[in-house]
Design a protein around this nucleic acid. Structure first.
Lengths: 159, 159
DNA sequence: CATAATTAAATTGTGCACAATTTATTCTAA
DNA sequence: TTAGAATAAATTGTGCACAATTTAATTATG
């Protein structure tokens, strides 16, 4: 890259990184939107939106969880989560209950219907098949880089 | 990867790809959100939202463009774009005008203020600095993979 | 103990994002 | 040439996403 000036053994200049960084944001944004769009129809057939799906996936994996812990796992605050979870409750997939030990917390559980949904959702990931033309290795690399980026962002927030 | 069974020289099984594909969607979604969140404050200081920013960036690059062509470039339909562009018009950064040759089209132009904004926006990409811990090469790889994925999704849509 | 600080959810208000429909204009084919 | 198809924007309605504020409960401190 760059000018070929390697005398000072510098890292690529900040300017270059920032030029690329500027361009990174848009494909991230666009790609996320388009991939979620692919999931939309199959999810609709089992009665979920994408956001509801990731909430339910966390519950499938962890079982009972507080709204706070759930929010930290999926990067959503109560302003988004509270209404989403209430909708899932209306749909009959989850129960909400204040913790007796600390009434500030709401714990969320799957109902029987919510548990049963997992079987129906098994084919959801197939939606990507034939829509994303990346090899297995490319997907693995992409997955790894996205998670590395996320970790970095998280560290910044914790500080 | 996988079982080590290479007798039939198969590609990694669909099952494996789908397992990973299932996991790919969430980091994409989360990473896009978090990166956009990093841009939010600096953009706010020059009076733009992220969506308005990508619209303006297209105008900086291409100059006059129709709403339709703009929408294709940034993957947004008129339902999203029309109100966003009208807000940019209210803010004084763009002008909207029906094409005389074909009144169905709206062409969008930058105002002087919209052109001036480019100078102020120069430092926006620096927002990522110190927030994404990826090397230059990693960013390049990520950028390439995201664009490759986007192309694939696009092909599917054109068909 | 009582008040202040902290914390988890909920609420409020703004701004997308998108499917579905409508409106207005242009094109096309009988 | 004119009715129907096609097209670009606009509109409508739903559902996030998030900053900022509020409410209610718990913890910490003088």
């Amino acid at each position: 890259m760059g000018t070929g000036k390697e005398i000072m053994a510098e890292l690529p200049s900040k300017f270059e990184v920032l030029k690329l960084g500027n361009q990174l944001c848009f494909p991230l944004y666009a790609c996320a939107k388009e991939v979620i769009k692919i999931y939309r129809k199959p999810l609709q057939q089992i009665g979920l939106t994408y956001t509801q799906y990731i909430v339910i996936m966390v519950l499938w994996e962890y079982g009972e969880i507080s709204e706070k812990d759930l929010g930290e796992k999926i990067y959503l605050d109560s302003g988004t989560l509270t209404p989403v979870i209430k909708k899932l409750e209306k749909s009959g997939f989850v129960k909400r209950q204040r913790l007796a030990e600390d009434e500030r917390f709401v714990k969320i559980n799957l109902t029987d219907d919510g548990i049963k949904l997992k079987e129906k959702a098994k084919t959801i990931p197939q939606a990507l098949e034939g829509n994303i033309y990346l090899s297995y290795d490319e997907m693995k690399t992409l997955y790894g880089l996205l998670n590395k980026a996320l970790e970095g962002i998280n560290e910044g927030r914790i500080q």
